[in-house]
Structure formats: structure tokens, C-alpha cells
Design a protein around this nucleic acid. Structure first.
Length: 976
RNA sequence: CCGGAUGUGGUGAAAUUGGUAGACACGUCAGACUUAGGAUCUGAUGCCGUAAGGUGUGGGGGUUCGAGUCCCUCCAUCCGGACCA
């Protein structure tokens, strides 16, 4: 066989590349480094579908391109191997998750290998292996043994905190120099008192400051999964995985103090090359808002309520305060007369799940506590309410309600008929009783010393006044919550902590790794303790780390994956620094990508890494959706008379079929819209996507698929006839000889097994080869755009590679390449291809570079060009995209292994210089003709030439020339 | 409700960033070669129209000699975040 046949050489070259380690990156190189990373996959049982490799192919092209340009490229791959699905599977089947995970990884590896990626497999990591998670645990210990020093503004060993306590004690909740603003409910003590603390007292105190700490917090508890979930793992009140209900529950939990890094996580975004949408999501998630805290004295009590507001300018518009039902002061301030009503309300609010609360946004609920606060300036009595529209977790869990200028307060005030006061005058007069005026623009009125100021100035002045009187202070609030770090699950990293007197003590570094123990069942204990409590003699923490622990630093391990003494050597870390290009899905915007940045900054603070941002440039590949194919069928099985839509959509009279059939299918061509679908009494169901091509059903394959009963007759009504048992008939039942097409209805859906629309890369490779798969995935459209996967166009790419092959190899398998000198035109094709491909790769526009290759091959085929001078550099150009065929041809035309180790061809722009251009000539902006003119022609000469043109003359007839627009090398526009 | 993105032929898409709209490919149609074609090759193919021509980038308006591209406005779809004070 002389034709392009990828099956004969792809595997061979994959083996050869692996054997010769052409993709290995050296940690000791004088070359400039370039680090290209993919988000590593969770190895699920379903294997890869064609959507997964999209990003991997793009990064592989880029990595190969960088190698050709002389960089030392690090391009690794590994597995995010801890996770819920393997454990759920273990619960169902008893199969140990380590075994399923290993099997799944093997399958992934096999699939990845077939695609011809240039990964450096010697650097593979698996987060579930002790030699990896030892270092995840090590980082946890570092977090545990560190605190965030607000003064130096970085993480430091906890010893430096102890040193301060020994010197100056602790000033209580307002000790900003130590707390940096987070809440600690601990009274002040002196340095002497500290010295007299027992060891556990000291530890208990320090636990409040550690970056990994244990505390009672409200968590997202998912009873069905038996674990807590992080905020970003909960979508619309149900778990992201499985869609089980989630409720709020107070539990003792390990958390990481990511909030200490809020400001730096925000600031770092300005220094990295990420899409604005991801940056915006992170900014939004961190949710910085600047404002003021204000203390309201409580009438008849020595306590006060602290609120946070971004609008201190509206302080005189306060007509009530609202506390979250969970607020700790509620019980204290409520007078006896109101207690039962309030308690009932609080209980009701507490028992509502997140989901109910969310579904119920418009339903306003609340209760008056019976207590009053006093306005800090006017001294006016302000009723205190409880309302579940106030969130316990944000700010102080209490708000000063300004119904005139906050729509939520307005809704609440209107519902309970509370006064609405206007304190900001906007440009237009609005009825403040009807709707609140929320804009931060206007002049302050009815506000004592703030009157006449604009909003901005009033905010400033009010804060100053509050601070003077000690009633409040300017404050910045973040929406970001500390990250809950414990999961009540088995399949995760054990947290290296033991307990004594109920207090956690970190393990010593030398005790690591704390290996995941074997247990009899992967379920919680009878007492409801996590599965690890089943392990015999287990005296450690029983929760395990969340899925994102291992992925928060894996990019560093790739730099030095086998190191047993450190998470990576200093030399490796200093050389590779951080990831230059990271490709992955945008669904990790507020999870993985935020946590990885947090850990990197932490390691930076401790001096382990040189950069504080892990990923310099991030590209998000679009989601690949599936395309399902549907087949229409008649609902009434017995009746065989069928009404059909004819060509123009009208209904034809019923047709008679001679045969009794089990079911009548109707081609999509015959059903133009939904209306007719119902008029015809049809329904539709999925067809296996493999049984169709371009929405045309392969009837024989369909009938042998599992979706149809075999051994029965079926009628397929097409546009123009009927097919039964492989025979074609016209609508009157006469046998005809015409070939008929039966079409199905394509629809974009998620790719899923149950929809029969999953396409695996293996199927594509078996049919067309890896190079076609690689190029087709790129050809599909822009990398960052979401798009449905459709194999309809794949033939074009396959044909292109066949055409390319024919430039090199003749019918009798002989090499056609000769050493004749290339013509100018041929050189022009080569160099314009070099130019475009280089620009496209640099701009991540891989779809257009595939087109460029097609154009080049079409043109060279037209020239019948078999010249080495052209074809050899062409292979290097192509090798990042289609490495197998490039290597095969490279060696076949007499070059040494390997095409992957060549230099990217240099562009010689002199071949691209043109000296004439075929100008489009437009009359009043509409193109009417083209005239070839030299590029150095002056406007005057061009005008003469154009106006003399016959076609132009025709359009000018009877009109006067108003303007002659001449853009050199672009266009001529004649305005009449 | 807020934020982000996207709307171009039957389909996936391209457009030098304000300059020939639909490159490249799929599909379709016609033809060639073949015993055969789900192989290969050639040609046509936005829509209306026999044609001349008209019309056309979600709708409407604007700036410009010239707008898919810039501005205003409305609509639709998708993806995030949602009672964040």
C-alpha cells in the first residue's frame, strides 16, 4: 500500500520517541526553560472522551513548537488520583479505591499514549501515592506551624508569634498587629500571664493563629455523601458531584486561613496573563468591599452591636438594625416578652437548608426582638430585628438597615411597615417610598453634619467622625471564607495530626508520610465517625484532606518528582520557577486556581520558591459538548398507515405498506418542525452516534445495535420512499431501485453515556490515526470557545494528510522528493506558511494554522512540487501538529531521526514581497471589479487607470465624481 | 438580579483589526475514472432572480468614502456568581 496509512507507523514512532526519550526535560541545561502544563486529569472509570484531549493537544503543539525554537521544555503529565468517585465505587462494590484508581490510570495512560503526546513520562506524579502525599502533608505541617504576621504581611513560623507574646502579651480582640483583623474571642493577657500558661493553654491559644487550624464552623454538610463540602463544591444548594442536598451544620473542622491572603490574591491578578473572565471570577469570589464598622449601643445594656457597611454616608438613614438568626447577641438582648417568638423564628431559620433559603429569596421573613439600639450620633432609638436575609458569615452578621438606599432593606421595611428615610438626593426626584435609590451618586440630605456633601466625601467624613468618637472605624471586608480542609472520607491524604487532651498536635516531619491505613469498610462508623476511625490503632485525625490539596502544588513536584529529601530541590525550583503556560478548563476558576495561588504565596513567604504566582499565562479551553442524534418514530405501533410531510412541508395522504412491521421510523427530512412532529404522532429517541454519519443513519448498523430488538421488521420512511428489510419501495408500495437516505435529528447535549453520544479518541484513532485526531480537534474552532463535538468534518483533515503524503511518496511506495531548486512561487508558499503558522501558534489560533497547512498542500499539489527545499522544512513546521506523519516522512526522505529535534524554519520575508496587487474597485463602497496595478503606483496614475476602466465607466455614467479614495495595497473606492 | 462570553451560509468556521464578507473544511449537486465505491480526481455551491441586478454578518439607529469590526440601543443563547450590607 502506497497510500497514507497511519496505522503502519504511528505506534512505531511513539515507541521510538519513548525509547530514545526525546521528550525528556533536563534539570541541568544551559537552554532557556519553558514550562507548559495541562491541568492533570482525575482518572475516572469512563476513560477519556474526545473532549478531554482538546487542551492537551493544544499544549502539546505549543510545547513541541517551543522545543523547535530551542527551549528546554518541561511538559509533564500526572493524575489527580484522590477523589470521591473512586470511593463511591468502593462503597458500592467493596473494591479498594487504590485498585480502581490504578486501573483507571492504566487506561488513561494507554489512551494518552495513542495520541502521541510529548509528555516527559519520567516525571509522572500521582497524588494518591505516599511518596507524593508525603509532601502534601509536609506542606500542611508548614501551614500548621505558621501564622500570618499582619505587620510584615507574610506568613512566618509560629515561633515568631510566640516570641512576640513572650515580649508583649496579647491585647485582646483589638490586637490588630497580631490578628490582622480576624475575630478572636480571647481576653487580653500580659507577657507574664503567657509565661504562666500551661502547654495546652498555649497551644489552644496558638491554634487560633495557625494557617491550618481547627475550629467550630458552619459547614456545608452533605448527608448523602457523608461529608462536608467546600463552597465551590456546592452548586445551587446541592452537591456538585451527584446533586445531593446540602445542609448547614456546625462542626469542628480543619480550615486553612486563605483569608489572610485576600489582598495579595487580588493584587497578584494584575501581574498575570489570564483571561479577564477568570480574573473577574476570582475578584468576585474574593469580594473586597471597603467601608466602615460602626458600633451601635444597645439600650439598657452594656453590650453593643457592630455592623459593617460600605455606605457610612447613609448612617442617618438607618431606621432599624437587622441581625442574622445565628448572631450571638440575639439571645442576650431579647426581652422576655419576645423570647418565645424569636426562638421559634431562629429555629425555623436554622433548619432551613441552603437550598430552601435560596429558592425562597423573595419571601421576606423576620421578627422584632423587642430591643432597641441607639444611633451613634443622634441618639435616636432604633428597633433591632432578626432577619434571615442577613448572612451570619459575612461582615459581622448584622446590618444597619437603610431602606431608602438599599433594596433589600427596602423590601424588608416595606414588608414590616418600617420607616423609610431619604438621605441621598440623586439627579432625578424619585419616590423613595416606592423604590430605594442604591446608586453611590448624589448629595447627602437630612444628615446633620453630612448635609450637602457628595457620597464619596460623606463616606470619608463619616468614618473620620466615627473614629474620633471611637464608635467605629474604616474597614475592608472580604467575601472570601477560610477554606474548609477536612473531609469525612477515606480516599484522601490523612491529616498528619494526633490529639492529646482534645488538642491537636502536629506530627514531626520525620514521621511522614502518614500512610492511609487499611480499613474493613469504606463507610462511616456506627457512631457516625469518618471511615478512618475504623482503622485499628489509628490515633490520628480521622478526616482526610479535600480533593484540591494534592493539586495545589503538583506543578512544583514535576520539577523534581523523584526527590525523597525535599518536595523539590532548590536548584530545580530556582531553574523552572513557575509555569509559563497553563491550559485547562475554566470550571476551576474559584477552586483549584485560587488554592494553588494561595499555596504558592505561602511557600514563597517561607522562602521555598522564587515566584509568588504559579501560572504566568493561563488559557481556558472551551467545553466540548456532545451532539446526540435522534430518530423519530410513530407512537402507534400497529397502524402502518403514515402521513408524511412532502418536500415543501405539506402533509401527504396516508400511504399503505404491504408489510406488518414492529415500528415505523420517520426520517427527519420528513418532519420540518415540532408542530408536524406532533401532528404525525411521533416521538423521538436517541441513536448511537456511531450509527450515523452526517446525520444520515446507517440502517444496518442501527438494526444490529442494542437499541432495537433484532429479528423484526421495521419501516423507515424517507423523503421519497420507504425502506423495509433492506428493500426500497415508493409510497404506493412498489419496489424501486433508488437509494434512499434516512436522516436523524442532531441536537447539542452534554456528552454522556446515557445519551449514546460519547465518542472516544480510540475510535477516531482506529479509523483515521492520531494525527487526524490531533489536527481535527484543533480545526474544530478557536480553542477557548465552547463547541459541540461533531465528527462530520473529520474526513477533510484525513484527506489533507493523504494529499500531503502524496507530495512525498508515490504510488509504488517510492520517494518522490528531489533536489531540484524551488521556484519563486513555491518558496513563497513555504514562507507564507512559515509566517502564518508561527503567528498562529504564538496566538493560540490553531484552527487557522490547520487551514494554512491545507492551503499550502493544495497549492504545492497544484505545482506538482516534490522539491526537498520546500518539503523538508514543511515537515518541521507540521511536526507539532501531526508528529507521526512528519517523523515518518522526515526519515523516509532520507533524514536522521528525529524531526522533533530540528530547528523551526526561519522566515525569509523577501519571498513574500509582491510588486503588484489586484485592487478591488468599489463604487460607493460596493465592489464592482478588480484591477491589477503595481504597488508603487501613485494615486494620480491609479485614478487615471481606474476611471478609464470599462466597467467603472459604466457605473459612472451620468454621475459626477465626488471623491477618489485610494488605499495603497488595499482598496480603491470611487465616490459618485 | 449582577458579572462574563457569544450571535456570520445547510454545518464547523475565516476575515490582514475599519478596506473584496464567507478563506479552509464538512455536506450537497454535477461530472471523470471504475465491475463496484463509504476510494480518488475536477467543477459548482450565502440567499432571491432565467438574467441584468438586488440583497446579506441577531434587530434597530449612528459615525465613516467604506462597518462583521467603532459608538448607542434592544433581543436571543450559553457560562459563572448570586440576599456579600
Amino acid at each position: 500500500m502506497a497510500n497514507y496509512d497511519p496505522a503502519t507507523f504511528e505506534k512505531r514512532w511513539q515507541d521510538e520517541w519513548a525509547a530514545k526519550k526525546v521528550n525528556a526535560a533536563s534539570n541541568d541545561s544551559s537552554k532557556e526553560k519553558f514550562y507548559v502544563l495541562d491541568m492533570f486529569p482525575y482518572p475516572s472509570g469512563a476513560g477519556l472522551h474526545v473532549g478531554h484531549p482538546l487542551g492537551y493537544i493544544a499544549s502539546d503543539i505549543y510545547a513541541r513548537f517551543k522545543r523547535l525554537q530551542g527551549f528546554n521544555v518541561l511538559h509533564p503529565m500526572g493524575y489527580d488520583a484522590f477523589g470521591l468517585p473512586a470511593e463511591q465505587y468502593a462503597i458500592q462494590t467493596g473494591q479498594h479505591p487504590a485498585i480502581t484508581t490504578r486501573e483507571n490510570i492504566a487506561r488513561y495512560r494507554e489512551q494518552l499514549d495513542k495520541i502521541g503526546f510529548s509528555f516527559d513520562w519520567d516525571r509522572e506524579v500521582r497524588t494518591c501515592e505516599p511518596d507524593y502525599y508525603k509532601w502534601t502533608q509536609w506542606i500542611f505541617l508548614k501551614l500548621f506551624n505558621s501564622w500570618y504576621n499582619p505587620v510584615s504581611n507574610k506568613a512566618e513560623p509560629i515561633d515568631t508569634l510566640v516570641a512576640q507574646l513572650e515580649k508583649r502579651g496579647f491585647l485582646g480582640n483589638d490586637d490588630q498587629a497580631l490578628t490582622g483583623g480576624f475575630e478572636v474571642d480571647i481576653p487580653a493577657f500580659s507577657e507574664d500571664e503567657w509565661q504562666n500558661f500551661t502547654g495546652s493553654q498555649k497551644n489552644e491559644f496558638l491554634l487560633n493563629f495557625r494557617l491550618a487550624y481547627l475550629s467550630e464552623t458552619y459547614v456545608n454538610w452533605c448527608p448523602a455523601l457523608g461529608t462536608v463540602l467546600a463552597n465551590e463544591e456546592v452548586k445551587e444548594g446541592v452537591s456538585e458531584r451527584g446533586g445531593y442536598p446540602v445542609e448547614r451544620k456546625k462542626m469542628k473542622q480543619w480550615s486553612l486561613r486563605i483569608t489572610a491572603y485576600s489582598e495579595r490574591l487580588l493584587e497578584g491578578l494584575d501581574r498575570i496573563d489570564w483571561s479577564t473572565s477568570i480574573k473577574d471570577s476570582q475578584r468576585n469570589w474574593i469580594g473586597k468591599s471597603e467601608g466602615s464598622s460602626i458600633h451601635f449601643a444597645i439600650e439598657g445594656s452594656d453590650q453593643s452591636i457592630e455592623v459593617f457597611t460600605t455606605r457610612p454616608d447613609t448612617l442617618f438613614g438607618v431606621s432599624f438594625l437587622t441581625l442574622a438568626p445565628e448572631h450571638s447577641l440575639v439571645a442576650d438582648i431579647t426581652p422576655a416578652a419576645h423570647r418565645s417568638v424569636i426562638n421559634e423564628y431562629i429555629n425555623k431559620a436554622k433548619n432551613r437548608t441552603e437550598r430552601e433559603r435560596m429558592a425562597d429569596v423573595k419571601n421576606i421573613s423576620g421578627e422584632f426582638t423587642g430591643a432597641y439600639a441607639l444611633h451613634p450620633f443622634s441618639g435616636q432609638r432604633i428597633p433591632i430585628w432578626v432577619g434571615d436575609y442577613v448572612l451570619a458569615g459575612y461582615g459581622t452578621g448584622a446590618v444597619m438597615a437603610v431602606p431608602g438606599h438599599d433594596s433589600r432593606d427596602h423590601a424588608f421595611a416595606k414588608h414590616f411597615k418600617l420607616p423609610i428615610i431619604q438621605v441621598v438626593q440623586g439627579k432625578e426626584d424619585l419616590d423613595i417610598q416606592e423604590a430605594s435609590y442604591d446608586a453611590k451618586e448624589g448629595t447627602i440630605i437630612n444628615s446633620d453634619f453630612l448635609d450637602g456633601l457628595d457620597v464619596k466625601a460623606a463616606i470619608k467624613k463619616c468614618i473620620t467622625k466615627l473614629e474620633e468618637k471611637g464608635l467605629g472605624q474604616g474597614k475592608t471586608n472580604y467575601r472570601l471564607r477560610d477554606a474548609i480542609f477536612g473531609r469525612q472520607r477515606y480516599w484522601g491524604e490523612p491529616i498528619p495530626v494526633a490529639y492529646s487532651d482534645g488538642l491537636p498536635y502536629a506530627l514531626e516531619e520525620k514521621e511522614l508520610p502518614l500512610v492511609l491505613p487499611e480499613i474493613d469498610k469504606f463507610l462511616p462508623t456506627e457512631d457516625g465517625d469518618p471511615p478512618l476511625a475504623r482503622a485499628k490503632g489509628w490515633k490520628y485525625e480521622t478526616t482526610t484532606m479535600p480533593g484540591w490539596a494534592g493539586s495545589s502544588w503538583y506543578f512544583l513536584r514535576y520539577m523534581d518528582p523523584k526527590n525523597v529529601g525535599e518536595f523539590a530541590s532548590k536548584e530545580a525550583l530556582d531553574y523552572w520557577k513557575n509555569v509559563d503556560l497553563y491550559i485547562g478548563g475554566s470550571e476551576h476558576a474559584t477552586g483549584h486556581l485560587l488554592y494553588a495561588r494561595f499555596w504558592m504565596k505561602f511557600l514563597y513567604d517561607l522562602g521555598y520558591v522564587k515566584e509568588d504566582e504559579p501560572f504566568k499565562k493561563l488559557i481556558n479551553q472551551g467545553m466540548i459538548q456532545g451532539v446526540s442524534e435522534f430518530i423519530h418514530y410513530r407512537l402507534d405501533k400497529d397502524k402502518i398507515e403514515v402521513s408524511l410531510a412532502n418536500e415543501h412541508g405539506g402533509l401527504q395522504s396516508p400511504i399503505k405498506l404491504a408489510k406488518r412491521v414492529a415500528r415505523v421510523f420517520i426520517s427527519h427530512d420528513c418532519i420540518r418542525d415540532r408542530e408536524k412532529e406532533t401532528a404525525l404522532g411521533t416521538a423521538s429517541g436517541h441513536v448511537m452516534i456511531q450509527n450515523t454519519s452526517n446525520s444520515v443513519l446507517n440502517i444496518r448498523e442501527y438494526l444490529s445495535s442494542s437499541l432495537v430488538e433484532t429479528g423484526k421488521s421495521y419501516a423507515f420512511i424517507c423523503d421519497g420512499g420507504v425502506i423495509i428489510d433492506g428493500e426500497t419501495y415508493d409510497y404506493s408500495g412498489n419496489k424501486i431501485d433508488r437509494a434512499l437516505k434516512f436522516t436523524t435529528k442532531p441536537e447539542v447535549e452534554k456528552m454522556s453515556k446515557s445519551k449514546w453520544n460519547v465518542v472516544s479518541p480510540d475510535e477516531i484513532i482506529a479509523k483515521y490515526g492520531a494525527d487526524t485526531l490531533r489536527m481535527y480537534e484543533m480545526f474544530l474552532g478557536p480553542l477557548e470557545m465552547a463547541k459541540p463535538w461533531n465528527t462530520n468534518g473529520i474526513e477533510g483533515v484525513y484527506r489533507f494528510l493523504g494529499k500531503l503524503w502524496k507530495l512525498y511518496i508515490g504510488e509504488n511506495n517510492e520517494t518522490l522528493v528531489n533536489n531540484d531548486p524551488a521556484t519563486k512561487d513555491e518558496l513563497k508558499v513555504l514562507h507564507k506558511t512559515i509566517k502564518k503558522v508561527k503567528e498562529d501558534i504564538e496566538g493560540f489560533s490553531f484552527n487557522t494554522s490547520v487551514s494554512t497547512f491545507m492551503i499550502a498542500v493544495n497549492e504545492l499539489s497544484g505545482f506538482k512540487c516534490h522539491k526537498r527545499e520546500i518539503l523538508e522544512p514543511m515537515l518541521i513546521l507540521l511536526s507539532p501538529f501531526a508528529p507521526h506523519v512528519a517523523e515518518e516522512l522526515w526519515v523516509r526522505i532520507g533524514n536522521g531521526f528525529s524531526v522533533t529535534q530540528q530547528q523551526f524554519p526561519a522566515l525569509d520575508a523577501s519571498f513574500l514581497v509582491e510588486n503588484s496587487f489586484s485592487y478591488p474597485i468599489s463604487i460607493n463602497g460596493k465592489t464592482r471589479t478588480q484591477i491589477e496595478m503595481p504597488l508603487d503606483m501613485s494615486q494620480e496614475d491609479a485614478e487615471k487607470l481606474v476611471l478609464a476602466n470599462e466597467i467603472v465607466q459604466k457605473w459612472l455614467e451620468g454621475k459626477t465624481l465626488k471623491k477618489f479614495v485610494f488605499v495603497k495595497g488595499r482598496i480603491v473606492n470611487v465616490v459618485v
